[in-house]
Design a protein around this nucleic acid. Structure first.
Lengths: 338, 338
DNA sequence: CTGTTAGCGCGTTCAT
DNA sequence: ATGAACGCGCTAACAG
C-alpha cells in the first residue's frame, strides 16, 4: 500500500550509477555525459520522480517560504493584501504560509515562533491592534529572518515598512471637499491609540493651517469602530453650535454607520451633509446613497510591494547594510457616481 | 554576523552528554534522570534553543502543514473559508499554505505539484471554474495525500467534500416567499455550466411540484454574473406576460444589480418586487433597500468543517478504508430588517 | 538511565 | 565524466 516515492538513490541503483551522478544529471550539470543524462532523466520521468523538498529545505537552509501574519484574513483589506502577496510570491517560486493573530498579541508571538522554527525565509506582518512590544520581531533579526511590516506598522524603529500615505490621501480628500465649498469639515477617527488617528488629525491641522482656516479640534471625533461608537462620534459632531457640513471618516463602514445616523436625524446624505472615507468597498456602487467619495488604499498593491521588498531583503541578506525601505502607497480619491 | 542557531548537538557537547539524551530530555522522555533533564532544559533555555522544524519534517516525513487551493483569496466567501480553515489548523498545530488558482487550471496543477513536493500532509481545494479533469487530484491519492473539496466540489467521484446544501437552502427560501404570498417566483442562476445552477433549478422544480404549482421554465434565467448579464436576465423575466413578483438570485451581488435594474424600470424593491439571494454580505445592513432576505452559507463553517475532515483523514491514513465524508452545510435564511 | 549508531534525501566537495 | 563520502539536525532502534 505504501507507494514509496522514488528518490535519486533508487534511480541510481536501477541504473547502476552513483547518486551524485543522478543528482547532477537532474540538474543538467555540464560535466555529465549526454548519454547518462538522458538515461537518468528518462527514468526519472518514468518513475514520476519529484525531488523531496523537505530534504532540500533542510539541506539548503532555505525554504522558499514566506510567512504572513495579520489580524484577520476575512477583512477586505487584508484579504486583498494577502492576495497581492501570494501573487508576487508565486511569481518568484515562493510559498506563502499564513497566520491570523486575531488581534491577540500572544497568538502573534506564537505564530512568529512557529514560523521561525519552520525556517521561513522572511515574514510580512501587519501588527495586532494591541502590540506594543516588538521584541518578538526584533529577535528575528539575529536569526537572519527579514521582516517587512505593512499597513499596521510600528510607529518607530528601523524596519522595512509599507503603509498608506495618510498625509497625501487626507490632503487630497480635504482639498476635494474644499473645492466643493466645504469649510467646516469634521473627522471621525478610529481609537486614539491608532497611529492612523494621529496622522489623520495632524494632516488635517496642517492643511487647515496652510489654508489659513481656523482649527477647531471639536471637529475631530473618535469612534471605537462599532456602530454605537460611531453614533456617539456623530452626535458630538452634529450637536456642535456650528456642525460640520462634511465629514471625513476612517473607513467606509464607519461612514455608512454615520450616514445611517445622519439619516435618522433627518440629514440627507449628499445633500445636507457629505462624507468621504478611506478604503473603497466594492459595494459602494450599489448603495443608493454612498459616501461622496472614497480614498482607495490599494491593499493588493500594498501587499505586493511588501512582498517585493521582502524578497529583495531575502536575496541580499549577505549585504550587512540592510536598507530599510519605508514605502508609502499613494491613495486615490474615487468619486462615487450616483 | 552569522549567529548560528543552537542545535541539540551543541547542547550535548557543552554538557558532555550524547545528542540522544538531549533529544530525549527535551521531549520529557520518561527514561531520563530528573537531574540531566533539568540541566538540559535549562541550557536549552539559556541558549534560546528552538528545534529546527525543517529537520524534523524531513525526518518524520510529516510537515504538519495543509495546503489550501482556491480561486481567489479576495472573494468574501473564500476569505471567510480560509479564515475558518486557519483557525482549525492552528488549534491542531498545523500550518496553512495557500495558493490561488485564479480560476486557471494550469496554475491549479502547478500549485498542487508544488504542494506535493513540499510534502504537505493534506490539501483542501475549491476547484477552479474550468477544471474538468481531476487527474492532478486523483494522483495525490497514491502519494497518501488526502484531499478534501469544498464549495466548488467535483460533480461526481469518490471524494471527501463539503458544500452548501442547495436543496435545503433553496427550499427554505422558496417556502419563505410563498408564505409571503408569492406564487410567481423567478430565478436568476449563474452560468448554466455551474453545478449550483442545475441544483437550484432542480430544487425549484421539485418544490413547485410538491406544492402542486405549475412549473414555468421561462421563470428561470441565467446571468454570467456581470452587471450586463444580470440586466438581460432581468429583462427576460420582467418582460414575461406574467412577470414574477419575487426573484431568487444566485448571490447578493447579482441581487443588487437586479435591484438596480428593477429600480431603473420603476419597480421599487420590497414593494413592487422582492428579492432573496444566497450568501450574506456584511454590507446588506447598510443598504437602504436590501434584498428581503439572504441565505447565509457560512463560509467559515465550511472551511472549518473541511479542515476537520482533512485532519481526520490525515490521522487515520493507516485505515485502508478511507471513508469519504460528504457534508452538506445547511443554509440559514436571514431576513433583513429595514 | 544513557550512549552509539544509523539513516531520512539531497547537494557538494574531493578524489579519480 | 563519474564516484565516494560527508553532513545538514534530528529521532529511534539497539546496546549497554
Amino acid at each position: 500500500m505504501q507507494k514509496k516515492l522514488p528518490t535519486i538513490k533508487e534511480i541510481a541503483n536501477r541504473l547502476n550509477i552513483s547518486v551524485s551522478t543522478v543528482s547532477r544529471a537532474l540538474h543538467d550539470h555540464p560535466s555529465i555525459g549526454l548519454r547518462t543524462k538522458t538515461r537518468v532523466q528518462q527514468l526519472a520521468n518514468e518513475l514520476g520522480y519529484e525531488p523531496n523538498q523537505t530534504a532540500i529545505f533542510f539541506k539548503q537552509r532555505k525554504t522558499f517560504t514566506i510567512g504572513v501574519v495579520l489580524p484577520y484574513l476575512i477583512e477586505d483589506f487584508f484579504a486583498g493584501a494577502i492576495s497581492g502577496i501570494e501573487d508576487v510570491a508565486n511569481q518568484n517560486k515562493y510559498n506563502v504560509l499564513i497566520g491570523q493573530s486575531h488581534d491577540d498579541v500572544e497568538r502573534e508571538k506564537a505564530i512568529i515562533t512557529a514560523m521561525k522554527n519552520q525556517r521561513v525565509d522572511g515574514i510580512i506582518v501587519s501588527l495586532s491592534k494591541h502590540t506594543k512590544n516588538l521584541e518578538h520581531f526584533t529577535s528575528l533579526q539575529k536569526y537572519q529572518i527579514p521582516v517587512v511590516f505593512f499597513d499596521r506598522v510600528p510607529a518607530s524603529g528601523e524596519y522595512s515598512k509599507v503603509a498608506f500615505d495618510m498625509p497625501q490621501g487626507t490632503h487630497e480628500a480635504i482639498s476635494y471637499l474644499m473645492e466643493k465649498g466645504h469649510r467646516r469639515i469634521g473627522i471621525i477617527n478610529g481609537p486614539k491609540e491608532m497611529k492612523s488617528s494621529r496622522e489623520r488629525t495632524d494632516t488635517y491641522m496642517n492643511v487647515m493651517k496652510k489654508k489659513r482656516l481656523k482649527i477647531d479640534l471639536s471637529l475631530v471625533a473618535y469612534s471605537d469602530l462599532t456602530k454605537e461608537g460611531t453614533a456617539s462620534a456623530m452626535e458630538s459632531l452634529l450637536t456642535l453650535r456650528q456642525p460640520p457640513t462634511a465629514i471625513l471618516a476612517i473607513n467606509d463602514y464607519v461612514a455608512l454607520d454615520a450616514i445611517q445616523y445622519a439619516r435618522s436625524h433627518k440629514l440627507k446624505n449628499n445633500k445636507d451633509i457629505f462624507f468621504v472615507s478611506y478604503a473603497n468597498l466594492p459595494i459602494t456602487n450599489y448603495l443608493e446613497s454612498p459616501p461622496m467619495a472614497s480614498i482607495e488604499q490599494y491593499p493588493g498593491k500594498q501587499g505586493a510591494k511588501a512582498a517585493e521588498i521582502l524578497l529583495n531583503l531575502i536575496n541580499h541578506e549577505g549585504d550587512n547594510d540592510p536598507v530599510h525601505e519605508n514605502v508609502l502607497i499613494r491613495g486615490e480619491l474615487i468619486v462615487h457616481k450616483r
